[in-house]
Amino acid sequence: MRSAPLSLSGCFGAHRVVVALMGSLLLSSPASSANEGARDQCAAAAFFANCIMRGRQSGASLEDVRSYADKELARFGAPPAAKAYYRSIVSEAFRHPRYSKKAAQSEAMKEFSDFVFADCIKLLGR
C-alpha cells in the first residue's frame, strides 16, 4: 500500500475527540444531553468529508483512503459506531465523480461536506 496522500493528512488530528464521541452520540437517546453537541459533531464529520473528497478529487485511490481512515480511527480509539459512520463517508465520496478542473473539485468538496453535515444533523436529531 502506498502512503496516504498529503491531502488527507490532518483529517482526523484536530477532531480526535469528536471521532471518539461520535459512537456514543450515534447510540444515545434523543433526549440525552450528548445530543446537545450534535452541531459540533456534525461540523467535524463535514470537515472529515471535505478532506476525504479532497483526496478523491486529487486522485487518491479508494483503497488508500480507506486504509488511511481505518488507521486513524484505530489510532484514536474510535468506537464501532463511529468507525462505521466515518467509513460510510469514505464509501459515499467515491460514489461521486472525480473532476479535472479546480473549480469543479472545490464545488464537489463543498457540496459533499454540506451533504454530510445535513445527513449527520438528521441522524443525530432523530
Rank of each mutant, 00 (worst) to 15 (best):
A4H: 04
L6D: 04
L8M: 13
L8T: 13
S9K: 15
C11R: 00
C11K: 00
F12T: 09
H15S: 11
R16N: 13
R16C: 13
A20K: 01
L21Q: 06
G23E: 06
S24W: 00
L25S: 04
L26I: 07
S28W: 05
P30N: 05
A31I: 05
S33Y: 12
A34Q: 06
N35S: 03
N35T: 12
N35Y: 00
E36V: 02
G37P: 00
D40M: 08
D40I: 10
Q41N: 15
Q41D: 14
Q41H: 15
A43C: 02
A43V: 03
A44T: 03
A45N: 10
F47I: 15
F48V: 11
N50P: 01
N50R: 12
C51F: 08
I52W: 03
M53F: 01
R56P: 03
G59M: 09
S61E: 05
E63G: 02
D64V: 09
S67C: 10
D70I: 15
K71P: 03
E72L: 14
E72N: 09
G77M: 01
A78F: 13
A81G: 02
A81W: 14
A81T: 02
K83H: 11
K83P: 01
A84Y: 07
A84K: 07
Y85Q: 11
R87Q: 08
R87E: 01
S88W: 02
S88Y: 02
S91G: 05
E92V: 07
A93Q: 08
H96F: 09
H96R: 15
P97D: 08
P97F: 03
Y99N: 15
Y99L: 14
S100R: 08
S100I: 13
S100K: 06
K102G: 10
K102A: 15
A104Q: 14
A104N: 12
Q105K: 12
Q105I: 15
S106N: 09
S106W: 06
E107V: 12
A108T: 01
M109Q: 02
M109T: 05
K110L: 00
K110M: 00
E111F: 06
E111D: 13
E111K: 14
F115L: 14
F115Y: 05
F115G: 08
V116Q: 09
C120P: 03
I121C: 07
I121V: 11
L123K: 14
L124Y: 05
R126D: 10
